[in-house]
Nucleic acid binder design. Sequence first.
RNA 1: UCCCCGAUAGCUCAAUGGUAGAGCGGCCGGCUGUUAACCGGCAGGUUAUCGGUUCGAGUCCUAUUCGGGGAGCCA
Length: 489
Amino acid sequence: MTSSSQPPSPHWFTVVDALKAPEGTAVTVKGWLRTRRDSKADGGLSFLAVHDGTCFDAIQAVAKSSLANYAQEIATLTTHCAVEVDGVIARTPKGGNEIQATAVRIVGRVEDPDHYPIQPKPHSFEFLREQAHLRARTNTFGAVARVRHCLSMAIHRFFHERMFYYVHTPIITASDCEGAGQMFRVSTLDMMNPPRVPGSGDGKAGGPVDYAHDFFGKESHLTVSGQLNVETYCMALSRVYTFGPTFRAENSNTSRHLAEFWMIEPEIAFANLKDDAALAEDFIKFMIRTVLSERADDMKFFDERIEKGIIARLGAVLEKPFLHLPYTEAIGILQKAIASGRKFEYPVKWGTDLQSEHERFLTEEHFKQPVVLMNYPKEIKAFYMRLNDEGTDNAPGRTVAAMDVLVPGIGEIIGGSQREERLDVLDQRINEMGLPIKEYWWYRDLRRYGTVPHAGFGLGFERAMMYLTGMQNIRDVIPFPRAPKQAEF
RNA sequence: UCCCCGAUAGCUCAAUGGUAGAGCGGCCGGCUGUUAACCGGCAGGUUAUCGGUUCGAGUCCUAUUCGGGGAGCCA
């Protein structure tokens, strides 16, 4: 932590601790300058706002012109110069802590300050995305980073306290059965001259690539979901979850999609859809409570500068249970709204998936709170979702035990379901959807040997970050966003 | 991938087809226990790229690249 030329100081305080230290405490603070303001009072002095990322606020150091290096060094400091400040904690006229500096050592200057991109002023997020290596230095991205960390820790704590086991599911998968969108290929073959399936093409080019010669001996990709793998551990450890990176090669250009994002996927045995929904609700409320209490400083910033009133809105979500709404009833509500004059771009019809505008209407206009939509038509959902009995929720067709949690401002934040635990029904669904049943051999084995009802869901970590911070673009809640045409850093 | 909008100083933005401007930031000076400080001055430009129209293009047209908003796909 300390360079060899600088002996460790017994008084080294983080900014967060220095801001709470009693008056008179001798401290050394190490960090970066946010701003420097000069005054001619008391024979000349400079106010240095120093931050080190340990909390939202900077601490003010007062450097008098009597310091030996004042004119040469201190008075020429600019934004984000790295400094070490020795001094004594004092109270400002307004009440907070500041440091009466006895020494200011310059660790690293900012060269060419008139071209340093991060200035003490509001920057557009678009600009900061192009300066992703520097944006952590801003108020907003410092706050995002702290909340992101806080939330990551909270998620593990939530599950750990409830006897869930954290399972590391693979990043690389050679099974093509996850079925959740376009995948990134993983290969060590020579792209310019790949081996071809023997007897195909003209021997030099053409014909299918022979993946038998590839690293894993078969086609392999980056995972799009850890669910199928984590189900295997669920059938032995009862309550498990994954929390890892997930990859989708879709050409999505929106403020809500990334090519590389983090997903949390719990899976619970001896559980049905209601248990799943209850877990999802507990989970979301736990995340809200945690960031409000542990990152009050950063949340205050988001409340004032990013989304006015977000603290009150999140607080209100804690107050009442989530609303549970069968898909069939949601269709009814939407059709009633249309009948009374509400216009939508897309038609509403039982059997088709809800559009973004429909989800937003339900959660933002009609109910104005998080809504758990349940029991969707089987045709629009994945093969592994449990087939409901005929007539569930008075639906005109067969439904599956799926649920989506919709929140205002984001839309779908969680997608989950009770899983089909009956082998014969699962096989029927796989065949109906034209999927290669042989590929699912190990997944089907779980139903052959001691199958039990179970359920789970996936929560997009970055979507949760957006919901909790009010940040409008998913690319601004992950340090280095990966999206189409975007992998510079 | 589709629809719409945009790209001018370090940043945020102006500029009827006719000499390239302001605020902030930087530098210099003044003032001040300052804290989005304030006041005066100075420096800072291949107007995204390639073509075209025109006496003349930041401005109009073609194409491209990149960015933003919305949609689809989803988490």
